[in-house]
């Protein structure tokens, strides 16, 4: 049984189909990439999985239980955490306190939550920023902070929405290493990405969306040579390996 199963997920916004009949699975320990051009329905899919919007039809199953109708906070407590495409810090509190909010899911007492948050900040290489107000952090560190916050909820699967967006090449590399490390520690990932390098080098399998529909799925090699993908997403040019 897969950790996460998406079955025939469909979302209409009025007359517009954002996602149509989308099915895929994420097995435990994998890193799965979800790619597609702008407006392909990637973030909508994320929002449906994490409970932020209700699907028009279809189901999401996680650890064998259906998530449909669960609130985002329930989904999170159940072991599925997400980050946002645009970083969403709590600006007027410190980095440590930001992470504590996530830690409180499992650690109800402030002392325990603070300790857990400290560990998570260290895990993403931000221990020395613990007392900095989140509004004073640069983008790279805000991205790391997002990951630390999500990790503090002790998820089994982590959904990252464009974690590399807005970062320069060196910073992207750093975030990639972090994701690889965390994956080695046993966390499963579902990535939405625009930066091709990220998905190609990181993902065990890739799902390609276009206009809300799945047009291809397979290993990075397979997908990157799929003519349909090349046509829809990458233009007619050959993908850089």
């Amino acid at each position: 049984m897969s950790l996460l199963e998406v079955n025939s997920l469909t979302k209409y916004f009025g007359g517009l189909v954002a996602v149509r009949d989308l099915s895929f699975q994420v097995e435990e320990g994998m890193i799965i990439g979800l790619i597609g051009p702008n407006g392909a329905g990637k973030t909508t899919t994320f929002n449906m999985i994490s409970g932020f919007i209700l699907p028009s039809s279809g189901t999401v199953r996680f650890k064998g239980e259906t998530l449909n109708g669960m609130k985002p906070h329930e989904v999170c407590a159940f072991g599925l955490a997400r980050t946002f495409q645009i970083v969403q810090p709590f600006p007027e509190i410190t980095a440590l306190e930001n992470v504590m909010i996530g830690a409180f899911v499992h650690y109800h007492n402030t002392t325990d939550a603070r300790r857990k948050a400290g560990e998570m900040l260290k895990r993403v290489g931000m221990a020395r920023r613990a007392d900095t107000m989140a509004r004073d952090l640069p983008l790279l560190e805000l991205k790391r902070l997002e990951i630390a916050k999500a990790l503090a909820t002790e998820p089994q699967i982590l959904l990252l929405d464009e974690v590399a967006a807005g970062l320069n090449a060196v910073e992207v590399e750093e975030v990639l290493d972090l994701v690889k490390d965390l994956n080695k520690d046993g966390i499963t990932f579902l990535l939405v990405e625009h930066v091709m390098k990220v998905v190609m080098s990181l993902s065990h399998r890739i799902v390609v969306l276009n206009f809300g529909e799945k047009i291809s799925e397979g290993t990075p090699q397979k997908v990157s040579h799929d003519p349909q993908v090349l046509k829809a997403y990458l233009g007619e040019e050959v993908l850089v390996a």
Binding site: H73, F84, Q88, F90
Partner: peptide, 18 residues
């Protein structure tokens, strides 16, 4: 802390299990 997280960013709070 939960109240503050709601004030600071409600969506982020929900996503973190609040």
């Amino acid at each position: 802390y939960y109240l503050i997280s709601v004030r600071e960013n409600e969506d982020a709070a929900e996503a973190l299990g609040v």
